[in-house]
């Protein structure tokens, strides 16, 4: 998977976000085993301890499950994943609306723009 760790924010927070994304978009399907910490850390070019901490956080939230035989699996609980997807979508939508407001578009204009963009694909600019 593609990792993109940017400056300014804690690495750990970014890892949690990007792992969440990987879980909801099916990079790691429900119930499947995820690679070991070391592997994931090397892949992302981050410290294994930081990756460990991020996975621990996801585990605490019930999105990952530690297996007794070492390793972690993605939760098979579809509701939990759905809730996560919903949460991420809501926060992105809120962010989008906030930005549109900042640009001075009202609600109708924003809806219109969304519709146009969705239909028109790569039209304009």
């Amino acid at each position: 998977m593609d990792w993109n760790i940017t400056a300014g924010r804690p690495v750990y927070v970014q890892l949690v976000e990007q792992m969440e994304l990987a879980l909801v978009n099916g990079t790691f399907p429900p119930g499947s085993k995820i690679p070991p910490v070391r592997e994931l850390a090397a892949d992302a070019g981050v410290n294994p301890n930081t990756m460990q901490r991020a996975l621990q956080e996801l585990e605490n939230r019930g999105l990952l499950q530690a297996q007794r035989t070492a390793g972690r699996t993605v939760t098979a609980d579809a509701d939990a994943l759905q809730a996560l997807r919903r949460k991420r979508a809501v926060s992105l939508a809120a962010e989008f609306l906030y930005q549109m407001q900042a640009l001075g578009l009202d609600r109708a204009e924003t809806e219109e723009l969304l519709r146009q963009t969705a239909e028109g694909g790569d039209r304009d600019e």
Binding site: A7, G8, R9, P10, V11, V13, T50
Partner: peptide, 15 residues
Amino acid sequence: GVDALREETGHSVDE
């Protein structure tokens, strides 16, 4: 800690 510093300052260690 790297993350502690990023949290505290809002900057990367580099910055």
